[in-house]
Design a protein around this nucleic acid. Structure first.
Lengths: 125, 125
DNA sequence: TCATGATATTATTATATCCTTATTTCCTCA
DNA sequence: TGAGGAAATAAGGATATAATAATATCATGA
């Protein structure tokens, strides 16, 4: 009866995963960006993302060479409410706003317009 | 930054503890009642209660020979909202409603009126 | 199709978690 | 004050978790 919710909460019960969710609440991000912003190795980030995907908190989509992760829009209301209030470090927000490596690269490589914000508004398929 | 919340969620990340919180959302209960309703030993129940107390989800108070546990009323809003929606097995609800061992004993022993419901409405000190 | 870079998986280790049994502590009340 | 019951703590073992390093997979573009 409580198995599903205990799994969801275990997924939230780790500082690194909360950090990831906070970052994704600012904008979608690819794995390499998360690796830059988090104090753990790339495999560790991958494993955390897998866990977050298993419980249905994030989805992934491929953009050029990069795998982007995004918060799902069909989160349980309690979880969605929590993530809305989740604080994000100012330094993280500014990094994501300015130093957008992968998004810049993607935008350049596909020769699209200078509006790279379209990458941030992907809807859940 | 995320330490406090990850600890709270780790406390919720266990089926037995969610079960306990569900029971306490019906009414306050003493440890021996929880032991009867849960499929684990008395020390295990005590340890779960300690963890729930450490993160501020429950409080304890003594009533005669028994230690009662109750949900705190100053929970973080997200947690309070979750607990309001948390389902409780019908069998648990009926056990707590009818087979109220410790409360009956306490009421009898202190020779009080037949209204044992006062025990259920303790406010947080 | 092959090389490359991005991500995922595997193997391993250290630590944390959760259970049990045994024991101790702490109230209550005779 | 001391006997008895209720609950907490301690000790120990099995499993889960989270990190790393090493390796494998996979998509892209030349």
């Amino acid at each position: 009866m409580y198995k599903e919710w205990s799994e969801r909460f275990r997924a939230l019960g780790d500082g690194t995963r909360l950090h990831i969710l906070g970052l994704l609440s600012v904008r979608d991000a690819c794995v390499c960006e998360l690796v830059e912003l988090l104090p753990v190795s790339q495999p560790a980030v991958s494993q955390h993302l897998r866990k977050l995907k298993q419980v249905g908190f994030v989805r992934e989509y491929r953009q050029k060479s990069w795998v982007f992760y995004a918060l799902r829009t069909d989160l349980p209301p309690v979880i969605a409410a929590f993530l809305r209030d989740l604080p994000v470090a100012e330094s993280d927000v500014s990094w994501l706003s300015t130093h957008q490596v992968a998004i810049s690269c993607a935008a350049m490589e596909e020769g699209s317009s200078t509006d790279s914000s379209s990458l941030l508004t992907k809807s859940l398929t």
